[in-house]
Amino acid sequence: MRTAIISDIHGNIDALQAVLVDIKNRGIKDIYNLGDHFYGPLFPLETYKLLVKEKHIRNIRGNCDRILLDIHSENPTVQYVQTMLEEEHKEWIANLPFSLQTEEFYFCHGTPTSDESYLLEEMSPNGSRLKKTEDILKLVNGISQNIIFCAHTHIPRVVYLPNNKIVINPGSVGLPAYEDELPIYHKMESGTPHANYTIVTKKENDWLIEHIHIPYNREAAILQSKKCGRIDWVKALQTGRI
């Protein structure tokens, strides 16, 4: 059993296409998408068309999907995307589930109770760091599945817990680095400009976990970011850093 997990596309259609081609070439049919599909200065409608075309992808909602439905938002990037959204797109976003579950897997964007909190990392004035084991255990308490997928930080990571659960973040398909003001100012940097996703494979009673880094043509995304005045996105797409 092989499963591909993608997340945080952020309107980067070229990155998404490259990832889906790689997944197809590997013969993987089960794909789960952990949210944040369109937010950003790139290509939200093109991304939408590709996602709805790929019927085998199961999608959940991220915090940057939810905020696109906030008609009172003063966020310029939210407003940029909202000007393009029609009722079809809004309805698709509104119908996305918060989480998904299978017998083996649990999927969420942030944590099992919040789409805007980090499951594995905590912020400090010195930057991000891995949370204490006991703090992660509290956040996944009550989840019966042994494999838990989260996203939101854009940083590929695997954490093994003492209760035999594994928490996996596939990283970001479309935005390899960003900065945020909340809960305190911090940067999240993957260090690679490539598109990231994860494959998990069942090997008898064990799991093979592969973080995949896919090169793709970033010229269109970089040019579009420049047109929108998002120099932070330009550097992130070029270097994987802010």
Rank of each mutant, 00 (worst) to 15 (best):
I136Y: 05
I147M: 06
I143K: 01
A151R: 03
N163Q: 13
P170C: 07
G171W: 03
K131F: 09
T133C: 14
Q145A: 11
L182W: 12
Y178C: 01
Y160N: 15
K165T: 07
P156D: 05
T153W: 02
L175P: 00
K165D: 06
R157S: 11
K165Q: 15
G171T: 04
P156M: 07
L137V: 05
H152A: 09
E179T: 12
T133D: 04
I155S: 03
P170H: 06
Y178F: 15
P183A: 08
H152M: 07
I143T: 03
K165N: 09
S172M: 01
P162A: 14
F149Q: 01
I168W: 05
K138V: 07
K187G: 01
K132Q: 11
G171E: 03
I136E: 03
L137C: 07
A151H: 03
T153Y: 03
C150R: 01
E181P: 05
E179W: 05
V173M: 08
L139K: 13
N146W: 09
L137R: 11
K131D: 06
K165W: 05
H186A: 07
N169M: 02
E181D: 14
E181Y: 12
V159P: 00
K132Y: 10
K132P: 02
G171P: 03
S172A: 11
L175Q: 13
H152F: 09
I147D: 00
I136C: 07
C150H: 02
K131E: 10
K187E: 09
E181I: 11
Y178M: 03
D180S: 12
F149T: 00
Q145S: 07
Q145G: 03
T133V: 06
E134N: 13
L130H: 12
T133N: 09
C150E: 04
H186Y: 12
T153K: 05
I136W: 05
K132M: 10
V140F: 09
N164Y: 14
S172D: 02
S144Y: 11
P162F: 12
N141K: 14
R129F: 15
G174M: 06
Y185P: 10
I148D: 00
A177P: 00
V140T: 08
N169P: 01
A177G: 02
D135P: 01
P162N: 13
H154A: 06
P183Y: 08
I184V: 10
Y185A: 07
